[in-house]
Amino acid sequence: MPQAQIQPAQTGATPPTTIDHGDPVLALVLQSLDDDQAQELVTIDLDGKSSIGDYMVIASGRSTRQVAAMAQKLGERLKQAGFGNPRIEGLPAADWVLVDAGGVIVHLFRPEVRTFYNLERMWGFDGPSGAA
């Protein structure tokens, strides 16, 4: 399967991540977040780490308004593409919004909230391969 380099939206923010674009939901999620100018995009392969999904995507928005808009647009795009109606949690405050797209779990943060929770470290993200 073809491999693609995903560059972080903010230059130098996060090392590039190599991921398999064979998953159409993951490809749509990454394209949607890129279109909406998500920052510090990280994809973590959950294979062998968790049964909650296949991938975890973590990204930042510059404000609560951008985080909420990215989540809502992602939900609409997933539904329009025929991937069902994803569950979205955290929209009222929009400091941390979780989008459950089935096999892809998406966490959208304001930068300071993302730094506080540091999910990348918790899930063992260790550089370009995304593997611990």
Rank of each mutant, 00 (worst) to 15 (best):
P128G: 12
D20I: 12
D100Q: 13
L33H: 03
P16W: 10
Q10H: 13
R114K: 12
E40D: 15
V104A: 08
R87A: 14
F109N: 05
M56W: 10
Q39D: 13
T14M: 12
P16F: 12
F83R: 03
D95T: 12
A132P: 15
G103L: 08
A9Q: 14
I19H: 09
G127T: 00
P24D: 13
A93W: 06
S32A: 15
H107L: 01
R77P: 04
V42S: 03
T18L: 15
I6F: 11
I52Q: 00
R114I: 06
A27T: 14
H107A: 02
V113R: 00
Q31K: 15
L74W: 00
A9D: 10
V25Q: 05
R77I: 03
A38Q: 01
D95L: 09
L41V: 15
P16S: 14
Y55Q: 05
I52Y: 01
N85P: 05
Q5W: 14
D126M: 09
G90F: 01
A68I: 05
H107D: 11
P111M: 07
L26A: 01
T14S: 13
S32D: 10
K49H: 02
P24K: 09
E89M: 02
L91T: 02
I44S: 05
R62W: 06
P86F: 04
G75A: 05
T17F: 07
G82H: 04
A59E: 03
V42N: 00
T11Q: 15
D20A: 14
T18N: 12
I105R: 00
A68G: 13
A69W: 01
M70T: 02
V67K: 03
Y55L: 07
E40P: 10
V99N: 05
V25K: 06
Q7F: 15
Q39R: 14
I44L: 09
D126A: 15
A93D: 13
V97F: 06
F83I: 02
P8F: 10
Q31V: 08
T17S: 13
